[in-house]
Design a protein around this nucleic acid. Structure first.
Lengths: 206, 206
DNA sequence: GTCTATAAGCCGATAGAC
DNA sequence: GTCTATCGGCTTATAGAC
């Protein structure tokens, strides 16, 4: 069970991430996945049991990491005392946009996320809500403390809008025409700044 | 070529809309579509030529209508003189949310839109941009007139965020827990009002 | 326009050798 | 852990009768 840098399992996961992002879960076959990963067709069932379970492990791998980074960023904001709508939003958004720019599969993964939303797969939603819902609640609590006059119902609507805008922005991130003069890092920071400014104003709406 | 109320063609389109929304373009087969529509399997190729072309006609049918309603609403706002960020946003958003609530297939269609976005299908994007892009430009122009100090680049970022939030909201619309006491019409108006308030504040961000 | 029958091929999953 | 070979079932698309 020792995990090697380019194990069969890893190669399958990476190939699956790319192909499912490109063609969808139903649109990409395990035959395509194993051919791209340069492994035998039977290896998928040996290592993951089924196509469905392979997909679940795909989400688990990335969401564990993304969630941990968001929590870390939020805690850091709260420890440093500079708690504003902007800094909290940045703690939520920046890890996601960094992932959206990562060529090592993260870029594919955020497109997978957009697909998962469109799927409205109840099992997947349950999985996400069970495993990562508490983090969203942490952020909601932080926002509410800064917006004491906002009704909870209004906040939830607005957080939904923000989630939608972020999902859309992340998944399109590779396509927004980046001025060739600036670095990817610069572009990512610009996107985060634009997003935070927009979302903070939206949260402050009367 | 006389279009009858429940022609084979119409039944195929409606069944396809529902099934593709539920299972995706690759996930739902023409066999499922024709079985649901109560028509023969061969009828799809007779009337549409191929699965891909059936999908295109699906989008054409709804987007022609949605775009026309948006243009009409925008013109009405501009004729009546009450031109504000809120009224323009409402002209853009309300026809979409009405569609999202329509049980006669519109509800399925907006989920198809979310899927199409996740697909990042270049051919479909080109089709949408070629046929409906001029309407988005009309709205952008109207916004810019009310936000003379906003850089164009900033506006485009914000319109992207708004599109994402709207796509997400529409496609999730059937799932937001509606208090049983209020009517669907009421719920739709509430969603539109929440959205317009949020988006207008976001557009006005410093 | 609608039907049956079928072509030609891809699918996920597994049995069993190595 | 990796391989080949294969099972049973599904897919889109079409040819040709009615």
């Amino acid at each position: 069970m020792i995990s090697q840098p380019f194990s069969t399992k890893d190669r399958i996961l990476s190939a699956a991430e790319d192909l499912f992002a490109k063609s969808g879960f139903a649109g990409a076959s395990l035959r395509q996945v194993t051919a791209t990963a340069n492994v035998n067709l039977a290896a998928v069932n040996y290592h993951f049991g089924s196509k469905e379970n392979l997909i679940n492990e795909l989400f688990k791998r990335r969401l564990d990491d993304l969630t941990a980074q968001r929590v870390k960023a939020l805690e850091q904001v709260q420890r440093n005392g500079a708690v504003t709508l902007e800094t909290i939003l940045d703690a939520f958004v920046s890890p996601a946009l960094t992932l959206a720019q990562d060529r090592g599969g993260g870029q594919s993964f955020v497109r997978l996320l957009a697909r998962a939303f469109a799927e409205q797969d109840q099992k997947l939603r349950r999985f996400v809500s069970d495993n990562y819902g508490h983090v969203l609640k942490e952020f909601a609590k932080a926002f509410l403390q800064l917006l004491p006059h906002l009704a909870k119902e209004d906040l939830y609507w607005r957080l939904d809008f923000i989630s939608g805008a972020l999902t859309y922005t992340m998944s399109d991130f590779g396509m927004i025409k980046k001025p060739t003069a600036i670095s990817e890092e610069q572009h990512r920071k610009n996107a985060a700044a634009q997003f935070v400014r927009f979302a903070a104003a939206g949260l402050r709406a009367p």
